[in-house]
Nucleic acid binder design. Sequence first.
DNA 1: TCTTGCCCTTA
DNA 2: GTAAGGGCAAGAT
Length: 993
Amino acid sequence: MIRAMSTENSLPALTADDHLILVDGSTFIFRAYHALPPLTRKPDGLPVGAVSGFCNMLWKLLQEGLTPEKGDEPTHFAVIFDHSSKTFRSDIYPEYKAQRPEPPEDLIPQFGLIRQATRAFSVHSVEQEGYEADDLIATYAVQAAEMGARVTIVSGDKDLMQLIGPKVGMIDTMKNKIFGEEEVFEKFGVGPDKVIEVQSLAGDSVDNVPGVPGIGLKTAALLINEYGDLETLLSRASEIKQNKRRENLIEFADQARVSKQLVTLKQDVPVNVPVTHLSVTDLDGPKAVGFLKAMGFTTLTKRVAETTGAEATNIEPADFQVPGWDMPDHKGRLVEHAAPAAKSTSAAGGDPADLPKGMMVPQTVAEARAEAARATVIDASAYETVTTLERLKEWIAEAYETGHVAFDTETTSLDAMQADLVGLSLCSVAGKACYVPLGHVDGEGDLLGGGGLVAGQIPMDDALAALKPMLEDPSVLKIAQNLKYDWLVMIRHGIDIGPADDTMLLSYALDAGKGGNGMDELSERWLGHKPIPFKEICGSGKSMITFDKVVIDKATAYAAEDADVTLHLWQVLKPRLASEHMATVYETLERPMVPVLGRMEKRGISVDRQMLSRLSGDFAQGMAALEDEIRELAGENFNIGSPKQLGDILFGKMGLPGGKKTKTGAWSTSASVLEDLAAEGHELPSRIVSWRQLSKLKSTYSDALPGFINPETNRVHTSYSLAATTTGRLSSSEPNLQNIPVRTEEGRKIRKAFVAEKGHKLISADYSQIELRVLAHMADIPQLKKAFEDGLDIHAMTASEMFGVPIEGMDPMVRRQAKAINFGIIYGISAFGLANQLGIGRGEASDYIKTYFERFPGIKDYMETVKKDVHANGYVTTIFGRKAHYPEVNTKNPNMRSFYERAAINAPIQGSAADILRRAMVRMEDRLSRSKLDAQMLLQVHDELIFEVPEDQVEATIPLVREVMEKACEPVLQLSVPLQVDARAADNWDEAH
DNA sequence: TCTTGCCCTTA
DNA sequence: GTAAGGGCAAGAT
């Protein structure tokens, strides 16, 4: 193949012995910027976090190549940058990567620094007008591979995966992840050679590659695997069975072809620098050291100096300019101060060797731990099955010796309130774990009632008696993943586990928003190890067996590994708590919640089964009546629960004016669309709305709830998740008791079925307008604060302030609009959303928002500050320091970007309110018991707590509950706005609310 | 039998 | 416009 090459190319071609490393510079910068903690150079505050990450990676690659073994160092090396956003792709498709946002302010000066870093390390950097870095990488990779050399692309960009092959590998140094054919297959469902075909079908919202509507990665892979490539598929599209899919493939065939051009990397860029010129040149030690010194990277400076033999102390920090970041007293020369100095001091020439140790690397310990944990191999063959009490006691002794033990239970159910203990695993020293089977039964038991206990297990009572002192001993820290589950299982056996750490909550406190906090995911993320899937042990679906039927050898491999992985995770995550200043959040808002929620779940709440059963009957009757009417109105029978069939009838057969379409192109039949039609006098849509309401109440509530009544306790025990949301809220499931109907009369009948025990009352205590109060405090809005102090109607006040109308005798519609705006503000308002909510035009909504911001300029300022923060840091924080991460907020897709910005505006508000309620909950039990009150906390619904209280204690309980809730911020924080709690008691939840 | 899309319930 | 969980239909497996 002919390649355009420089005519002066006289250097030898690459051979099979050569190894070319191509670093995807631009994406690396963004990744380093967002993934690493912000780091600024002292003393001038120059942001250098991304530079630091870049230099460390560069150094490591140059020294070691991909593996620490000698002989893998690269022979050729280049960092490839994007030159400008305008490329040949914009000509094919103008929307491609359109509206690429400005990079964060504190990243901008780092681009230049990183280019300087490549020079300082004597590394080639290549960029070329009109081409993306990806195209240059593709061209170089192909050329080098054709010469027989090995190529490694350093990037995390999925668009580069199409290049992977026998000679070309890819590694993501940030995530320590190597991409081979297997990983590509995992991601795209096809091999690297078919990645382009799949991408052109599935599209890419981030880069604005359109693809074909309704086809995602899964379907795209499926089609390509069947038809081989895009053109074949398009030419045979008429054979596709699925209507929608076939139509879309035909209609959007050209769009798919354009997409293919967009995603196909150009492998024949007429490169200005030939690949042969990319050979590694000797590192100029003093030059590199000078640069690193100027940056203030003490650790790396030392390392490079040692390796290159450069005398660090004799080398002057390098001279250079950072556009827009010149220190007035240094005139562009960046020099470090030897010691904390007064702002005006300009003692140039301070010796970096005098810098306090570790000043630039505050997280050394945490990083070292993470590194060590990643390096450890998790080896199932080392696990022990404990079959005698003597051995168990030795394991317990080891927990006492080390002072900690990772602990995990195996049971017969995911529901901790129904789970029978089958065994448990322990691990005090990483890599050394055991499983103690206690309740395994013979799998051959068949219909005659199952087999008996498998021989060779310690009697459960003996084992638990031996374990109890250790599990409750204050000198042994227990470590679990999702501790609440194990806590509940064990408390049902009379063991109150404590003190304990929860790796799930550690991860949540540190990384909320960055991904899941489940063990398998954390293990892959932090340890690079995929634990044995539960499915592999117990199967799934109908043929799933309970853990007590698992043969013990398999059980040991699975269960002991869990404890081992948990301990590893703890070793990685726990040190981060201090270095990332999240210890207080974890200790006050996370860890103490485990037993509090555990006790709430264990208590459960009483529901009236008969009442629900009657309701189901009533709802069924109502539905049947409506079904008759609907059939009559529609003129045919159809499945009313099918939005598809309904859409066909309303907008096809009956020819009603169709409103919105869903994202897959089907007619929307949402309540708002149907209500609009009903308002125009159409009968059928209004019947459908009523039918749907009854259907929802019946299926989700009156039919389903009785199934959750625990046969032993006769109560319903929800399960709260402490780590399911990005903001810090709890979530509730199986059943979800945080979405019990309340808005409609019919719905409240469900709520009435939640009742107090005989001789008791339910107390519901809820915060009034907590989120608006939190906002008033955080954004410091005088009018809002005054209104809350004076106990005014906040929505009326808002309306009065905005529209200049008196609060007295206000038109309810005006107040309603103000209320919608207030909610909109909390949700990160958009004209689009407000218009939707109020049923007004976008322009009018826009005017409202403008007026609002004029009247409350502090709110606008607050929002802008939060946006700036989230773009700069990748996270936002609540008033108690909880972090909510939005790692994708800097996406180029404008819709996604706005979405993350709104979420980031909302998170501190919603999250602070959640923190406040958590604080109240953590204190509540102790305050009640110290007042000799027997009230029991049962439920939490975001701004509300439900208690069950002996009738004669209601009067005394209410004021105490209110006080704890209203003073939940104190003493560490005094809100500048009072919190108000309304509480009342009744026999059922509806009347208490 | 499993996944996805749609719709609906809450704060 | 924020944050959740869950039921059902439809289509793929």
